Amino acid sequence: MDKKWLFLPQLAGGADLALLLARLVVGAFLIFGVWDNIVSTERMAEFEKFLGVKGFAMPHLMAPLSVWAQFLVGIAFVAGFATRWAGLVCAFNFMVALVMVDAPLGIRPAFPAAALVLFGLIFATIGAGRISLDSMLWRKAPS
């Protein structure tokens, strides 16, 4: 009796679509999550103050750095451009957030940051998949 069905090999054909959907959802989440800080100096000032209270060095520099990193990573994920680099930046940014802010709050509050660390690592190691700018550019790159 053939036991291949136990491993559902027919689902492997949907890997690129699954990566695309994951990139779109995570990227849109990152963009949406920082948009208010980008368009509002008051919201950015609130974030700077929050980072200061949490013990971050130079919150006046760290706040915009984190906000713009998340925004650009979100765009990169949506487009599937420089996805491995964006994944590394995402993982690093949210590892810092996890250690400095979320971990002491417990598993439930820390889960979003932990998930973003993992998504960053997944995209950094697997890449964007075939439905991406990375794939289009890679195919056209000279060897």
Rank of each mutant, 00 (worst) to 15 (best):
F94C: 12
S40G: 12
D102M: 09
A128G: 15
I107C: 00
I75V: 15
A110L: 08
S40M: 09
G87F: 10
R139Q: 13
I107S: 03
T41S: 12
F119I: 06
L118T: 07
P104I: 06
R130N: 15
G55A: 01
L105Y: 01
M100G: 04
L121Y: 00
A86T: 05
W138G: 03
I131F: 15
A28T: 14
L116Q: 01
I38Y: 07
A69P: 01
H60R: 09
F29I: 02
F119W: 15
P104H: 02
L105M: 15
N37M: 13
A63N: 01
W85Q: 14
V39W: 11
L19F: 11
R84H: 13
K3S: 14
F32K: 15
A124N: 10
L19V: 08
I38K: 08
A113R: 06
E42S: 10
N37R: 14
G55P: 01
A113T: 10
H60I: 08
L118W: 06
F56M: 03
V39D: 13
L24T: 09
C90L: 08
D36W: 03
V39F: 13
M44D: 01
V101R: 11
F32S: 15
M44C: 02
A82V: 07
S66R: 05
V34T: 13
T83A: 02
P59A: 04
